[in-house]
Design a protein around this nucleic acid. Sequence first.
DNA 1: CATTATAATTATGTTGCATAACTTTATTGA
DNA 2: TCAATAAAGTTATGCAACATAATTATAATG
Lengths: 161, 161
Amino acid sequence: MKKAALELEAKSGPVAVGDKTLRAFHGYQMKRTFNVIQSDLSRTLKPFDLRMLTYSALVLIVDNPGLRQSQLAEAMDIERPNLVLIVDELERRDLIIRDRLPNDRRAYALKVTLAGRQLYQKTIAAVKAHEEMLLEGIGDDALATAMDVMRRIEKNHRRVG
Amino acid sequence: MKKAALELEAKSGPVAVGDKTLRAFHGYQMKRTFNVIQSDLSRTLKPFDLRMLTYSALVLIVDNPGLRQSQLAEAMDIERPNLVLIVDELERRDLIIRDRLPNDRRAYALKVTLAGRQLYQKTIAAVKAHEEMLLEGIGDDALATAMDVMRRIEKNHRRVG
DNA sequence: CATTATAATTATGTTGCATAACTTTATTGA
DNA sequence: TCAATAAAGTTATGCAACATAATTATAATG
């Protein structure tokens, strides 16, 4: 390092802050990247008045008509109590309904409404478009490899944890 | 789908909930994977009484001695007010000190203490070991490709956002 | 030297997530 | 059969991570 830079540092700290050690941890790199994706997705969903959680719930209900709240919570990997408000919101906006199951009056069968399905289609398209922007310039092979790596990490965790 | 399965579904919802549509979004896959990494890292750091945030701050201070809180906040991508309590905690535990800068009495020069450096070395080793477990069975090439993809996503976001 | 900007802080609110406890309904087994 | 147990959804509550606005002390600027 040059003398001038050292003197500047003595006054006001490092000229440029390096996160080399942290970046060496793959988990840290993934956190940074995920933050980027999440903030982009949030902005994409904002015009539809959806958050990641309400969006995920809507998609899962469309794809799995009649599922119970407990099944939805498990699929979303969140606790049941936290799902209640999410389903409340989707129901209040008439995007889904809580149908009773014929043989179990404790549970609800969650189903999408017409409005919900229409919103689903619009948002799916918007999210796909935004994702394509984020993934621009990344080859299909590289992307497939990256996704394999992620699934493998998930599998390793289940094996351990 | 078989008739028996359909009848079962009428009673109690889908037998297995699929998240195929969501998994098709790379961001969703990344969120799931990141959750796994984060929970593993949290467990790894718990014996040292560190969270991801305090750990990241400690590493950055070790690597960038004398940096200011504002620089640390920027490097960690969090708002300055939220960093105050993190630095408070590290200082209270005598892992770092808030030194005054000679020429700017508004700012602090953050520096690691001996205890902080010792904790740093222990935790770095533990985190590396845990990460190796999570990455077991993943080839070096595949991992490098995955990391390239992530950095590229980050770059694309800066270009857009 | 008055204005403006910056570093750190305080106060405050939101969101995502967790746990405990409760109500209603199903299931189990003595 | 019916008492005990379990399950689905809910309510209440708390914590952690983040954001914004406003405040204080100091520095930089015109």
